[in-house]
Design a protein around this nucleic acid. Sequence first.
DNA 1: TCAAAAGTGTTGCTAATACACCCATGC
DNA 2: GCATGGGTGTATTAGCAACACTTTTGA
Lengths: 239, 239
Amino acid sequence: MRGYDKHAYEPFAVTVDLAVLTLRAGALHVLLVERGQEPYAGRWALPGGFLLPEESAEEAARRELGEETGLADVSGLHLEQVRAYSEPGRDPRMRVVSVAFAALLPDPPEPRPGTDAAEARWTPYERATGLAFDHDRILANARARVGARLESTCLATAFCPPEFTLGELQQVYESVWGTPLDRPNFRRKVLATPGFVEPVPGGARLTGGRGKPAALYRAGPATALHPPLPRTPREGHPA
Amino acid sequence: MRGYDKHAYEPFAVTVDLAVLTLRAGALHVLLVERGQEPYAGRWALPGGFLLPEESAEEAARRELGEETGLADVSGLHLEQVRAYSEPGRDPRMRVVSVAFAALLPDPPEPRPGTDAAEARWTPYERATGLAFDHDRILANARARVGARLESTCLATAFCPPEFTLGELQQVYESVWGTPLDRPNFRRKVLATPGFVEPVPGGARLTGGRGKPAALYRAGPATALHPPLPRTPREGHPA
DNA sequence: TCAAAAGTGTTGCTAATACACCCATGC
DNA sequence: GCATGGGTGTATTAGCAACACTTTTGA
């Protein structure tokens, strides 16, 4: 930040990469795009793109999110910065520093191919391997980050539509963490946290499920979870 | 990452900013440098600098750390990436994207001024306000990140010399979190976590303290803390 | 002998896990 | 009826906060 000269250093390109996560049929999915050109032509990759001259990485990520998903209003969706990736060889063409974001979507719209006519597709998280560049690592980091945030923040509601049941909320945790949770205990912990969820006044849901209609909730005003929702229903904790 | 043209976009400068944290006399301190030139000439700032063409942000951060502290061997020190900062106006000169790191130092050496002859100084965390650029925010984010990592990882030993007492380790937590902890309970939790600390075979310490000599420990092989060391001796965090 | 810091023991409360059980709906 | 998912109740248990107490040093 001192002794600088605008032209003394090779210019860097700065991009954003997005791990757009959602739940489809109770399983974690990620939005992938098929690359149309070299390098890695034909391979799947995380969506992303260059920063425009007058936008921040967050703004670029939100713009890309709208472009890739085709969603009209993308302003309320949660974007979580994961970290920056800056290894010199990560893009064979030039020096690219990438800021990765995790985006959380409640309803999974069918993706429309981006402006560059490459295909876009929701892919189960487990099958999203062999991605272009270092996107395998970025995706794993994004999932780990989101999983950690679920423990201590109210982030889980970002995966849910405006009104949701506690069963749906529980599925968020189970899908991202990959562990089953005890329903009665989950319910108590969520309801015991003030401001996490609020019951919607006169609602109960019916049509979808085969069982008893579930009560509907909305996201509450809280952002932090005190105490945290621990990840361990079955884990080796002998001590 | 698609449809790119090396010259289609304004070039970005990429820098690293370092929040170098240490404990002096039981209080959290941060390394600041006085800026010698505009903008913000005469103001204090976090140390940092540009990425060289063939180094990653982590490598640049470690190099800067060595340059600013004057430490000969900087390879074992802990560097924690905080996040990237990319708002268009954050540097008035040009578009600068900065990757922030928190560095944790056990022994606080007197800093030597950097190559650019500006002054460098350890500053108590509370007095490190009014910094140049957006460094107030970066520093706060770095401290929050380190505090959160103390809960769930064995990071605290990075603040300690190779051999340390449990009292010193406790001071790390108390200084970063800003809360006093109960010594007996802290001791039990640390020792109950396998691999967090290991007693050094035949050691006890004497000269420094006025009380009973404390046993010496070293960092163990564990990196994660299960269960986490909770931050709350008596705390009610309402939303 | 006192102060200061390390270390041990104990107690009592809180909270969470692991269930059993009831409810309401679709088929 | 019965399968399925929602929701409530509860007992045992484990963990932990709080505090009393002992130990070992320097002054």
